[in-house]
Protein backbone atom coordinates (compact mmCIF):
# COMPACT_ATOMS: atom_id res chain seq x y z
CA UNK A 1 0.00 0.00 0.00
CA UNK A 2 1.30 3.34 -0.92
CA UNK A 3 0.27 6.58 0.53
CA UNK A 4 -1.47 8.81 -1.84
CA UNK A 5 0.83 11.45 -3.13
CA UNK A 6 -0.57 14.94 -3.23
CA UNK A 7 -1.68 16.03 -6.66
CA UNK A 8 0.97 18.68 -6.80
CA UNK A 9 3.70 16.22 -6.15
CA UNK A 10 5.98 16.25 -9.19
CA UNK A 11 6.76 12.61 -8.60
CA UNK A 12 3.16 11.56 -9.05
CA UNK A 13 3.80 10.46 -12.59
CA UNK A 14 6.69 8.48 -11.28
CA UNK A 15 4.36 6.92 -8.76
CA UNK A 16 1.75 6.18 -11.34
CA UNK A 17 4.26 4.56 -13.61
CA UNK A 18 5.50 2.39 -10.78
CA UNK A 19 1.99 1.40 -9.89
CA UNK A 20 1.19 0.56 -13.45
CA UNK A 21 4.32 -1.50 -13.81
CA UNK A 22 3.52 -3.29 -10.57
CA UNK A 23 0.02 -4.04 -11.78
CA UNK A 24 1.40 -5.52 -14.92
CA UNK A 25 3.90 -7.63 -13.02
CA UNK A 26 1.29 -8.93 -10.62
CA UNK A 27 -1.07 -9.89 -13.38
CA UNK A 28 1.67 -11.70 -15.16
CA UNK A 29 2.17 -13.76 -12.06
CA UNK A 30 -1.15 -15.34 -12.78
CA UNK A 31 -1.27 -15.04 -16.54
CA UNK A 32 1.77 -15.99 -18.51
CA UNK A 33 2.43 -14.14 -21.71
CA UNK A 34 -0.24 -12.19 -23.62
CA UNK A 35 1.74 -8.96 -23.08
CA UNK A 36 -0.28 -6.98 -25.57
CA UNK A 37 -3.60 -8.13 -24.20
CA UNK A 38 -2.65 -7.28 -20.63
CA UNK A 39 -1.37 -3.90 -21.72
CA UNK A 40 -4.55 -3.10 -23.58
CA UNK A 41 -6.82 -4.27 -20.78
CA UNK A 42 -4.86 -2.23 -18.27
CA UNK A 43 -5.04 0.78 -20.54
CA UNK A 44 -8.80 0.43 -20.76
CA UNK A 45 -8.93 -0.03 -17.01
CA UNK A 46 -7.02 3.16 -16.40
CA UNK A 47 -9.10 4.98 -18.96
CA UNK A 48 -12.23 3.85 -17.14
CA UNK A 49 -13.64 2.02 -20.14
CA UNK A 50 -15.03 -1.39 -20.89
CA UNK A 51 -13.47 -4.10 -22.91
CA UNK A 52 -14.78 -6.68 -25.31
CA UNK A 53 -12.43 -9.65 -25.31
CA UNK A 54 -12.52 -11.95 -28.24
CA UNK A 55 -10.71 -15.24 -28.30
CA UNK A 56 -11.27 -18.94 -28.25
CA UNK A 57 -11.95 -20.47 -24.84
CA UNK A 58 -9.13 -21.50 -22.62
CA UNK A 59 -6.74 -18.62 -23.12
CA UNK A 60 -7.10 -17.30 -19.61
CA UNK A 61 -9.69 -14.60 -19.99
CA UNK A 62 -11.23 -15.32 -16.62
CA UNK A 63 -7.81 -15.59 -15.04
CA UNK A 64 -6.86 -12.19 -16.34
CA UNK A 65 -9.93 -10.54 -14.91
CA UNK A 66 -9.64 -12.22 -11.55
CA UNK A 67 -6.01 -11.31 -11.30
CA UNK A 68 -6.84 -7.73 -12.10
CA UNK A 69 -9.56 -7.72 -9.45
CA UNK A 70 -7.20 -9.15 -6.87
CA UNK A 71 -4.60 -6.47 -7.44
CA UNK A 72 -6.80 -3.72 -6.16
CA UNK A 73 -8.93 -5.76 -3.78
CA UNK A 74 -11.94 -5.05 -5.91
CA UNK A 75 -15.08 -7.06 -6.00
CA UNK A 76 -15.30 -9.48 -8.84
CA UNK A 77 -18.31 -11.06 -10.40
CA UNK A 78 -18.80 -13.29 -13.33
CA UNK A 79 -21.92 -13.91 -15.33
CA UNK A 80 -22.12 -16.69 -17.79
CA UNK A 81 -24.42 -15.46 -20.51
CA UNK A 82 -26.88 -18.05 -21.70
CA UNK A 83 -29.90 -17.88 -23.98
CA UNK A 84 -32.27 -17.96 -21.01
CA UNK A 85 -30.51 -15.25 -19.03
CA UNK A 86 -32.95 -12.51 -18.09
CA UNK A 87 -32.13 -8.86 -17.47
CA UNK A 88 -33.07 -9.29 -13.83
CA UNK A 89 -30.42 -11.96 -13.49
CA UNK A 90 -27.91 -9.27 -14.32
CA UNK A 91 -29.37 -6.19 -12.68
CA UNK A 92 -31.11 -7.64 -9.65
CA UNK A 93 -34.74 -7.63 -8.65
CA UNK A 94 -37.12 -6.97 -5.83
CA UNK A 95 -37.90 -9.77 -3.40
CA UNK A 96 -40.83 -9.89 -1.04
CA UNK A 97 -39.59 -10.38 2.45
CA UNK A 98 -42.13 -12.34 4.48
CA UNK A 99 -40.84 -11.19 7.85
CA UNK A 100 -40.64 -7.49 7.29
CA UNK A 101 -43.47 -7.60 4.78
CA UNK A 102 -41.56 -5.35 2.50
CA UNK A 103 -39.93 -5.53 -0.83
CA UNK A 104 -36.21 -5.87 -0.61
CA UNK A 105 -33.98 -5.14 -3.46
CA UNK A 106 -31.68 -7.94 -4.24
CA UNK A 107 -28.83 -6.48 -6.17
CA UNK A 108 -27.63 -8.38 -9.16
CA UNK A 109 -24.08 -9.27 -10.04
CA UNK A 110 -23.47 -5.97 -11.78
CA UNK A 111 -22.90 -4.31 -8.44
CA UNK A 112 -19.26 -5.00 -8.40
CA UNK A 113 -16.01 -3.49 -9.54
CA UNK A 114 -14.99 -5.90 -12.19
CA UNK A 115 -17.63 -7.77 -14.08
CA UNK A 116 -16.74 -10.60 -16.41
CA UNK A 117 -19.59 -11.14 -18.84
CA UNK A 118 -18.71 -14.45 -20.35
CA UNK A 119 -19.89 -15.19 -23.87
CA UNK A 120 -22.00 -12.09 -24.00
CA UNK A 121 -23.32 -12.91 -27.44
CA UNK A 122 -25.18 -15.94 -26.16
CA UNK A 123 -27.82 -13.96 -24.32
CA UNK A 124 -30.83 -12.46 -26.02
CA UNK A 125 -30.78 -8.84 -27.03
CA UNK A 126 -32.72 -7.48 -24.10
CA UNK A 127 -30.28 -8.87 -21.59
CA UNK A 128 -27.39 -7.50 -23.58
CA UNK A 129 -29.16 -4.16 -23.69
CA UNK A 130 -29.54 -4.14 -19.91
CA UNK A 131 -25.83 -4.74 -19.44
CA UNK A 132 -24.89 -2.16 -22.03
CA UNK A 133 -27.08 0.36 -20.30
CA UNK A 134 -25.29 -0.14 -17.02
CA UNK A 135 -22.00 0.24 -18.79
CA UNK A 136 -23.11 3.50 -20.27
CA UNK A 137 -24.90 5.03 -17.29
CA UNK A 138 -22.85 3.55 -14.44
CA UNK A 139 -26.14 3.15 -12.63
CA UNK A 140 -29.01 0.72 -12.38
CA UNK A 141 -32.70 1.51 -12.27
CA UNK A 142 -34.48 -1.03 -10.12
CA UNK A 143 -38.08 -0.78 -9.04
CA UNK A 144 -38.07 2.93 -9.66
CA UNK A 145 -34.91 3.54 -7.66
CA UNK A 146 -31.66 4.54 -9.20
CA UNK A 147 -28.69 2.82 -7.71
CA UNK A 148 -25.22 3.91 -8.70
CA UNK A 149 -22.62 1.30 -9.38
CA UNK A 150 -19.52 1.86 -7.36
CA UNK A 151 -16.47 3.15 -9.09
CA UNK A 152 -14.16 1.80 -10.34
CA UNK A 153 -16.49 -0.20 -12.53
CA UNK A 154 -15.36 -2.10 -15.52
CA UNK A 155 -17.02 -4.69 -17.67
CA UNK A 156 -15.04 -7.25 -19.57
CA UNK A 157 -17.29 -9.05 -21.99
CA UNK A 158 -15.98 -12.02 -23.84
CA UNK A 159 -17.14 -13.60 -27.00
CA UNK A 160 -16.03 -16.63 -28.84
CA UNK A 161 -15.17 -15.99 -32.45
CA UNK A 162 -15.87 -19.48 -33.73
CA UNK A 163 -19.24 -20.52 -32.40
CA UNK A 164 -21.59 -18.29 -34.27
CA UNK A 165 -24.51 -20.63 -34.20
CA UNK A 166 -27.26 -19.91 -31.73
CA UNK A 167 -25.76 -16.61 -30.78
CA UNK A 168 -27.09 -13.11 -30.82
CA UNK A 169 -24.37 -10.91 -32.26
CA UNK A 170 -24.10 -7.62 -30.47
CA UNK A 171 -25.66 -4.84 -32.49
CA UNK A 172 -23.09 -2.69 -34.24
CA UNK A 173 -24.30 0.46 -32.56
CA UNK A 174 -23.85 -1.03 -29.12
CA UNK A 175 -20.37 -2.24 -29.80
CA UNK A 176 -19.51 1.43 -29.58
CA UNK A 177 -19.99 1.25 -25.82
CA UNK A 178 -16.88 -0.82 -25.49
CA UNK A 179 -13.76 1.26 -25.33
CA UNK A 180 -11.60 -1.49 -26.76
CA UNK A 181 -12.09 -4.74 -28.51
CA UNK A 182 -9.13 -6.87 -27.57
CA UNK A 183 -8.26 -9.91 -29.57
CA UNK A 184 -6.65 -12.71 -27.68
CA UNK A 185 -4.66 -15.05 -29.84
CA UNK A 186 -2.94 -18.24 -28.91
CA UNK A 187 0.19 -17.81 -26.85
CA UNK A 188 3.47 -18.69 -28.51
CA UNK A 189 5.10 -22.02 -27.76
CA UNK A 190 7.31 -20.99 -24.85
CA UNK A 191 4.51 -19.02 -23.23
CA UNK A 192 2.14 -21.89 -23.63
CA UNK A 193 4.60 -24.28 -22.06
CA UNK A 194 5.06 -21.93 -19.12
CA UNK A 195 1.32 -21.58 -18.81
CA UNK A 196 0.70 -25.29 -18.80
CA UNK A 197 3.43 -25.77 -16.26
CA UNK A 198 1.98 -23.12 -14.03
CA UNK A 199 -1.54 -24.39 -14.26
CA UNK A 200 -0.68 -28.02 -13.69
CA UNK A 201 1.76 -27.56 -10.83
CA UNK A 202 0.22 -27.82 -7.36
CA UNK A 203 -3.24 -27.39 -8.71
CA UNK A 204 -6.10 -29.72 -8.23
CA UNK A 205 -8.57 -29.86 -11.03
CA UNK A 206 -9.10 -26.80 -13.12
CA UNK A 207 -8.93 -24.26 -10.34
CA UNK A 208 -7.54 -20.94 -11.43
CA UNK A 209 -4.54 -19.85 -9.49
CA UNK A 210 -4.62 -16.27 -8.50
CA UNK A 211 -3.26 -16.75 -4.98
CA UNK A 212 0.12 -15.72 -6.24
CA UNK A 213 -1.20 -12.29 -7.05
CA UNK A 214 -0.73 -9.76 -4.28
CA UNK A 215 -3.10 -6.90 -3.71
CA UNK A 216 -1.36 -3.66 -4.54
CA UNK A 217 -3.81 -0.89 -3.93
CA UNK A 218 -7.36 -0.11 -3.06
CA UNK A 219 -10.16 1.54 -4.93
CA UNK A 220 -9.14 5.15 -4.06
CA UNK A 221 -5.72 4.60 -5.58
CA UNK A 222 -7.31 3.20 -8.68
CA UNK A 223 -9.46 6.27 -8.98
CA UNK A 224 -6.41 8.44 -8.51
CA UNK A 225 -4.65 6.52 -11.27
CA UNK A 226 -7.61 6.99 -13.52
CA UNK A 227 -7.63 10.68 -12.72
CA UNK A 228 -3.95 10.92 -13.50
CA UNK A 229 -4.51 9.07 -16.77
CA UNK A 230 -7.14 11.57 -17.73
CA UNK A 231 -4.71 14.41 -17.12
CA UNK A 232 -1.98 13.13 -19.40
CA UNK A 233 -1.06 15.81 -21.85
CA UNK A 234 -2.06 15.21 -25.46
CA UNK A 235 -0.38 17.59 -27.82
CA UNK A 236 -2.44 19.08 -30.60
CA UNK A 237 -0.31 17.25 -33.13
CA UNK A 238 -1.09 13.89 -31.51
CA UNK A 239 -4.76 14.71 -31.24
CA UNK A 240 -4.80 15.74 -34.84
CA UNK A 241 -3.13 12.47 -35.81
CA UNK A 242 -5.70 10.42 -33.96
CA UNK A 243 -8.52 12.32 -35.61
CA UNK A 244 -6.98 11.91 -39.02
CA UNK A 245 -6.72 8.16 -38.54
CA UNK A 246 -10.35 7.95 -37.51
CA UNK A 247 -11.47 10.14 -40.35
CA UNK A 248 -9.52 8.03 -42.80
CA UNK A 249 -11.68 5.06 -41.88
CA UNK A 250 -14.67 6.88 -43.30
CA UNK A 251 -13.20 7.37 -46.75
CA UNK A 252 -11.27 4.17 -47.00
CA UNK A 253 -12.29 1.87 -49.84
CA UNK A 254 -13.53 -1.39 -48.46
CA UNK A 255 -15.11 0.14 -45.40
CA UNK A 256 -18.84 0.62 -45.63
CA UNK A 257 -19.26 2.62 -42.44
CA UNK A 258 -16.26 4.10 -40.69
CA UNK A 259 -15.78 4.95 -37.05
CA UNK A 260 -17.76 7.86 -35.67
CA UNK A 261 -16.53 10.72 -33.50
CA UNK A 262 -16.97 8.46 -30.52
CA UNK A 263 -14.19 6.38 -32.01
CA UNK A 264 -11.79 9.31 -31.95
CA UNK A 265 -12.78 10.16 -28.38
CA UNK A 266 -12.23 6.59 -27.27
CA UNK A 267 -8.91 6.46 -29.04
CA UNK A 268 -7.63 9.56 -27.32
CA UNK A 269 -8.89 8.41 -23.95
CA UNK A 270 -7.10 5.15 -24.15
CA UNK A 271 -4.00 6.77 -25.61
CA UNK A 272 -3.71 8.84 -22.43
CA UNK A 273 -3.93 5.78 -20.26
CA UNK A 274 -1.42 3.99 -22.40
CA UNK A 275 1.06 6.83 -22.08
CA UNK A 276 0.69 6.64 -18.32
CA UNK A 277 1.29 2.92 -18.39
CA UNK A 278 4.47 3.61 -20.29
CA UNK A 279 5.48 6.02 -17.53
CA UNK A 280 5.00 9.22 -19.48
CA UNK A 281 2.80 12.16 -18.73
CA UNK A 282 2.42 13.00 -22.37
CA UNK A 283 1.10 11.04 -25.30
CA UNK A 284 2.99 10.45 -28.50
CA UNK A 285 1.86 9.37 -31.96
CA UNK A 286 3.23 5.95 -31.15
CA UNK A 287 0.56 5.50 -28.53
CA UNK A 288 -2.04 6.28 -31.13
CA UNK A 289 -0.58 3.84 -33.54
CA UNK A 290 -0.34 1.01 -31.10
CA UNK A 291 -3.90 1.40 -29.86
CA UNK A 292 -5.72 2.23 -33.04
CA UNK A 293 -6.50 -1.41 -33.73
CA UNK A 294 -8.20 -2.34 -30.47
CA UNK A 295 -9.93 0.99 -30.23
CA UNK A 296 -11.32 1.04 -33.74
CA UNK A 297 -11.66 -2.51 -34.99
CA UNK A 298 -15.17 -2.96 -33.64
CA UNK A 299 -16.36 0.38 -34.92
CA UNK A 300 -16.01 -0.38 -38.60
CA UNK A 301 -18.36 -2.04 -40.94
CA UNK A 302 -16.65 -3.69 -43.84
CA UNK A 303 -18.17 -3.55 -47.28
CA UNK A 304 -19.49 -6.84 -48.67
CA UNK A 305 -16.67 -7.11 -51.23
CA UNK A 306 -14.11 -6.81 -48.50
CA UNK A 307 -15.82 -9.48 -46.49
CA UNK A 308 -15.86 -11.78 -49.46
CA UNK A 309 -12.19 -11.19 -50.09
CA UNK A 310 -11.61 -12.15 -46.50
CA UNK A 311 -9.95 -8.94 -45.44
CA UNK A 312 -10.50 -8.35 -41.75
CA UNK A 313 -10.98 -5.03 -39.99
CA UNK A 314 -7.44 -5.33 -38.73
CA UNK A 315 -6.05 -5.59 -42.24
CA UNK A 316 -7.90 -2.46 -43.23
CA UNK A 317 -6.73 -0.58 -40.18
CA UNK A 318 -3.14 -1.63 -40.75
CA UNK A 319 -3.40 -0.32 -44.28
CA UNK A 320 -4.81 2.97 -43.03
CA UNK A 321 -2.05 3.37 -40.45
CA UNK A 322 0.50 2.75 -43.14
CA UNK A 323 -0.95 5.50 -45.27
CA UNK A 324 -1.83 8.26 -42.85
CA UNK A 325 1.22 10.50 -42.42
CA UNK A 326 2.56 10.81 -38.92
CA UNK A 327 2.01 14.18 -37.25
CA UNK A 328 3.95 17.31 -37.93
CA UNK A 329 5.06 18.68 -34.67
Amino acid sequence: MTNLPTPSDPSRIQWAAEQAEALRTEIHRALVGQEAVVGQVLAAFLAGGHVLLEGVPGLGKTLLVRALATTFQGAFARIQFTPDLMPSDVMGHAVWDMKSEQFHLRKGPVFTNLLLADEVNRAPAKTQAALLEVMQEQQVSLEGRTLPVEAPFMVLATQNPIEQEGTYPLPEAQLDRFLLKVQMGYPDASEEAAMVRQVTTDTIGDALRVEGVRPLMAAPEVLELQRLAASVRVDDAVLDYAVRVVRATRQWPGIAIGAGPRGAIALVRVVRAHALLEGRDFATPDDVKSLALPALRHRLQRSPETEIEGLGSDDLLQAILAKVPAPRA
Binding site: T284, D286, V288, K289, A322, K323, P325, A326, P327
Partner: peptide
Protein backbone atom coordinates in the same frame (compact mmCIF):
# COMPACT_ATOMS: atom_id res chain seq x y z
CA UNK B 1 10.89 4.95 -43.58
CA UNK B 2 7.48 5.61 -45.03
CA UNK B 3 5.82 8.95 -44.45
CA UNK B 4 3.48 7.37 -41.97
CA UNK B 5 6.26 6.33 -39.61
CA UNK B 6 6.14 7.73 -36.12
CA UNK B 7 9.16 8.36 -33.94
CA UNK B 8 8.71 4.96 -32.39
CA UNK B 9 8.75 3.30 -35.81
Amino acid sequence: IPASATEGD
